[in-house]
Computed example of a mutant assay.
Amino acid sequence: MTTTDTVVSSMVAAGLVAPGAAAHSARLPGGVVVHGVRVAQEHAERAWHFWRGRAGVVPLLTTRVTSAQDLTALASAAAEAGPPAESVPVAEASGTVARIVSRVGARSIAEAYPEDRAEEEELRDPARLVQLLDPPSGSAVAGNPLAFTPDWGIENLWLLLVEEGGGGGESHRLPLLLPGFLSGSSTAWPDMCPLTPAEHSAFLRHWNARYGAEVFFMGGTEMQLYVPRPPLDLPAIAALAIEQNAYCDDLDDVIDTANGQARSTVWHFWWD
């Protein structure tokens, strides 16, 4: 069991927060405890990695919490929402992803203008999409998970430690435990179906099993994933780019996603 005292003492010793920093806690439905501590933007990435993989906690950076009162409100909102849904096995999560991707692709092809239909079909077929992509480099592209913060003028974030599971591999449960942290998210046009916490969790579980993807930042309409082993071969890159574009319509087009984000150690999703 992690306590606020051990959170602060551990982070002070690591140089991540100043002595005297305050940590706060809240209990979610089902007994899950969330600890929160404010961290400077310059220390945020190192703080997340400091806790990543530690037994019993899942770290998450956010701007949805900015005070102890917010943490208390989070617990109250979660209580009103009721117990979180259970996560599903990887195979079931992958099946959910495949159904959503197939549905989005079918609707996109059906809605395309006649002169665009052949191109749309090509972009939705991984075997054909690979022919349009840049050759693989043989190594992952190093990404910056906090690249978006200067645009927002963010100086401080809150690091949440969710006492759940065995570390980063359980971060796919965060949308279930914190269902209000992502808002206004929907699948790609023309499908535009609101994504439920269970569907967010399915995509995250699917990507964690394949690429080790873990939630780094989540809040509002933004989510950042840390991805230690993104795909390096073109068929996997093409399939992933199609999944990502079905999941989040505000990405660039499928080819740009495949040539860029899909090969990176950081994946960025936002829904405007």
Score class of each variant (00 low, 15 high):
Thr2Asp: 08
Ser9Val: 02
Ser10Cys: 11
Ala13Gly: 04
Ala13Trp: 10
Ala18Ile: 06
Ala21Asn: 07
Ala22Cys: 12
Ser25Ala: 14
Ala26Phe: 02
Gly30Lys: 05
Val34Asn: 08
Gln41Pro: 00
Phe50Ile: 03
Trp51Thr: 02
Arg52Asn: 15
Arg52Ile: 00
Gly53Val: 04
Pro59Asp: 05
Leu60Met: 15
Thr63Gln: 14
Thr66Cys: 14
Leu74Trp: 01
Ala78Glu: 01
Ala78Ser: 05
Pro83His: 12
Glu86Asp: 07
Pro89Phe: 01
Ala98Met: 07
Val101Trp: 00
Val101His: 00
Ile109Tyr: 05
Ala112Ile: 07
Glu122Tyr: 05
Leu132Ala: 08
Asp134Ser: 13
Ala147His: 14
Thr149Phe: 11
Leu157Tyr: 06
Leu157Ala: 04
Leu159Trp: 00
Glu170Phe: 14
Pro179Gly: 11
Leu182Ile: 07
Leu195Tyr: 00
Ala198Lys: 03
Leu204Ile: 04
Arg205Gln: 08
His206Ile: 00
Ala209Glu: 09
Ala213Phe: 14
Gly220Glu: 09
Met223Ser: 15
Met223Thr: 12
Tyr226Met: 15
Pro228Gly: 09
Pro228Ser: 01
Arg229Lys: 06
Pro230Asn: 08
Ala241Glu: 04
Ile242Trp: 01
Gln244Phe: 03
Tyr247Glu: 08
Asn259Met: 09
Ala262Gln: 00
Trp267Val: 01
Phe269Glu: 03
